[in-house]
């Protein structure tokens, strides 16, 4: 299966989004799922261009509203494999409430957040995960607020699968493969340095270490809460280490499995119901 399109990419040369796209393609093309069983949703920002580069159905939606669209797709047809792509602006600013409630609902879909810690498509304004002191033309006095730790937030909100990876083909492919096996809401944050507006985060590449290889027990909530404290998104010191991989994974009741109406639906979902 090939899920590429012939649309010419408009990401900047060398953008880590290319790595993410390649990882997503490898994971999906080898997933054993049919093209019409997989659906993608994107928000607004550089990440959202991925919608045009994947030959899969879905919706290139509004800023911040990826989670409710994904949730709605599952309610319309629970048999679909749904992947939502967001930026940090979508997931942590404009649509933060949806991110939290998605963790709480535990509907079976995958939320992938491309976190470059900056609004890039609008030319470099700070987001809720930008570090203190960051300056751009709109913030000449510098950012004054401490960045949000999204992994900690997702753990606190009850997400049943919480992961973070770097924008590396292999890491992206592996984590999506794991997420496709998981039943319930999967939160995956991808650290994706923006070469134009936030290039200092390229340093992350040499700071990351693999949680699973280091013996982290992903079913241990307390251990996960400790691990999220190791990196605060604000400062990269010489001894900073950024854990990547699956922080937490546990089986919880799945939203759609608790509604008898949805359990009865066939492969087409409600579309297949004739009245």
């Amino acid at each position: 299966m090939n899920i590429s399109t012939n649309v010419k990419s408009t990401w900047c040369p060398g953008c880590p989004n290319f790595m993410i796209l390649a990882g997503v393609k490898k994971a999906l093309e080898n997933s054993g799922k049919k093209q019409n069983e997989m659906v993608i949703v994107s928000g607004i920002g550089c990440h959202a261009k991925i919608f045009d580069y994947l030959n899969l159905p879905g919706l290139n939606s509004l800023h911040g509203r990826v989670p409710p669209v994904c949730f709605g797709l599952k309610m319309g047809n629970p048999n679909l494999s749904v992947l939502g792509f967001s930026g940090d602006g979508d997931a942590y600013a404009e649509g933060l409430e949806h991110t939290i409630h998605s963790a709480r609902y535990n509907s079976n879909w995958i939320y992938i957040v491309h976190n470059n810690q900056v609004f890039s498509l609008t030319t470099g304004q700070p987001t809720p995960t930008t570090e203190i002191g960051y300056k751009d033309k709109t913030t000449p006095l510098g950012v004054k607020t401490f960045p949000l730790n999204p992994i900690k937030l997702m753990l606190a909100s009850g997400a049943s699968f919480v992961a973070r990876v770097f924008a590396d083909i292999q890491q992206v492919e592996n984590v999506i493969k794991e997420a496709l096996k998981h039943k319930g809401f999967c939160f995956i944050e991808i650290l994706q340095p923006c070469l134009i507006f936030h290039p200092e985060t390229l340093k992350y590449k040499n700071k990351i270490y693999d949680l699973q290889k280091s013996g982290h027990k992903k079913q241990d909530f307390q251990a996960a809460m400790k691990k999220v404290e190791e990196f605060d998104y604000n400062e990269i010191k010489s001894d900073t280490k950024i854990p990547v991989g699956i922080f937490y994974q546990v089986q919880k009741p799945i939203f759609e499995e608790q509604f008898p109406q949805l359990q009865k639906l066939g492969p087409l979902g409600w579309k297949g119901i004739k009245r």
Binding site: V41, G58, L59, S61, L62, R65, P67, P68, V69, C70, F71, G72, L73, K74, M75, G76, N77, L80, E97, H98, H101, L268, G269, W270, K271
Partner: peptide, 17 residues
């Protein structure tokens, strides 16, 4: 906001919403 966006998600699967 979640209501209308969820509704659109369901509607594009072909459901009457």
């Amino acid at each position: 906001i979640a209501v209308i966006n969820s509704a659109i998600g369901s509607a594009i699967t072909g459901a009457k919403v």
